[in-house]
């Protein structure tokens, strides 16, 4: 196995770890705000790592740019939607969790 494949493998596994962490948080955290917080953060980092790992396998720079563009677009979309979900919850009167 070449070094570059190893880097890709490590990146993919790390990315999957962050996705897993985000999903576990979604299932385990107490209220909608904390869930959104953990999920969007975890998924953004996970996606970044996965795409970084894949860009080492890309055949050309245009492919790398496409992967980067995917990451940026998903980040814009997910941060906006998480804000909107939180806003909707707040308007409905969902109280933030306190210990």
């Amino acid at each position: 196995m070449e070094a570059i494949d190893l880097v890709t493998g490590v990146g993919l596994v790390l990315g999957a770890f962050f996705f897993c962490a985000g999903t576990i948080a979604l299932l385990r955290f107490p209220d909608i705000y904390t869930r959104l917080h953990a999920l969007t953060k975890g998924d953004n980092v996970g996606l970044a790592l996965v795409l970084l790992a894949l860009s080492f396998q890309a055949g050309s720079w245009s492919e790398v740019c496409a992967l980067l563009l995917i990451w940026l677009l998903v980040m814009v979309a997910s941060s906006t939607t998480s804000f909107l979900i939180a806003q909707a919850a707040q308007r409905k009167g969902v109280k933030p969790w306190t210990r």
Binding site: L73, V76, T80, F83, L84
Partner: peptide, 15 residues
């Protein structure tokens, strides 16, 4: 819709 959604559409719309 607040400014967030409008800003989002402004960013993503042309794309």
């Amino acid at each position: 819709a607040g400014p967030m959604l409008q800003g989002f559409v402004g960013t993503v719309g042309p794309i």
